[in-house]
């Protein structure tokens, strides 16, 4: 945790809303990105983003600073995302269609590439939560194994084994499509 962030957390713990406002400004993009990558929906990611900071403010005094503030914040984000997914019973296709349109409209990728991306999104969305979340954190968010273990509240070895399994599953699901190509 950077020194500035530590000071801001200390001030925010004492009820300083200005300090907390600065913490939001520092972390909000990463929180939104993580929520979006887990949920695959921009509106839901924005809701989770706000809720994460509200929860963080409410339980800031419980933050013991044995982990980085960002790790603690992202743990809240992951938990909120997973509970939202359970509550709403996310379908795999619903966000994917939305994303496909976004990709087609927002880039100059050819249709073939767009199809591949859609297949990958579907394959990712089809992974169980306990396999997908480590994959998102490692391969999309570039987190270290230790950070992932801190966010998920498990051991580094558990993260390694989950990642190995999720990568194998992803390759397996993408294989038929790639063989055709």
């Amino acid at each position: 945790m950077s020194e500035t962030c530590e000071k801001l957390v200390e001030l925010a713990k004492g009820g300083n809303t200005v300090a907390f406002e600065q913490l939001i400004a520092i972390h909000q993009e990463r929180v939104h990105a993580l929520a979006y990558r887990i949920l695959g929906n921009s509106d839901d990611a924005s809701d989770i983003q706000q809720e994460t900071f509200i929860r963080a403010w409410q339980s800031l005094r419980k933050f013991r600073e044995d982990a980085a503030f960002s790790t603690w914040l992202h743990r809240i984000t992951v938990n909120l995302c997973l509970s939202m997914k359970r509550r709403r019973d996310y379908g795999a296709s619903e966000p994917l269609v939305e994303e496909m349109h976004a990709v087609v409209q927002g880039s100059v990728l050819c249709l073939e590439r767009t199809e591949e991306i859609t297949v990958l999104r579907r394959a990712l969305a089809g992974l169980p939560d306990h396999h997908r979340v480590p994959l998102v954190l490692r391969d999309m968010e570039d987190r270290s194994y230790e950070e992932i273990a801190g966010i998920l509240g498990c051991s580094v070895e558990s993260v390694r084994s989950r990642l190995c399994r999720s990568r194998a599953l992803l390759r397996e699901r993408m294989r038929p499509y790639m063989e055709v190509r």
Partner: peptide, 9 residues
């Protein structure tokens, strides 16, 4: 991402 600072505060 949209700026959520004002909404959260």
């Amino acid at each position: 991402a949209s700026d959520c600072t004002s909404a959260v505060m």
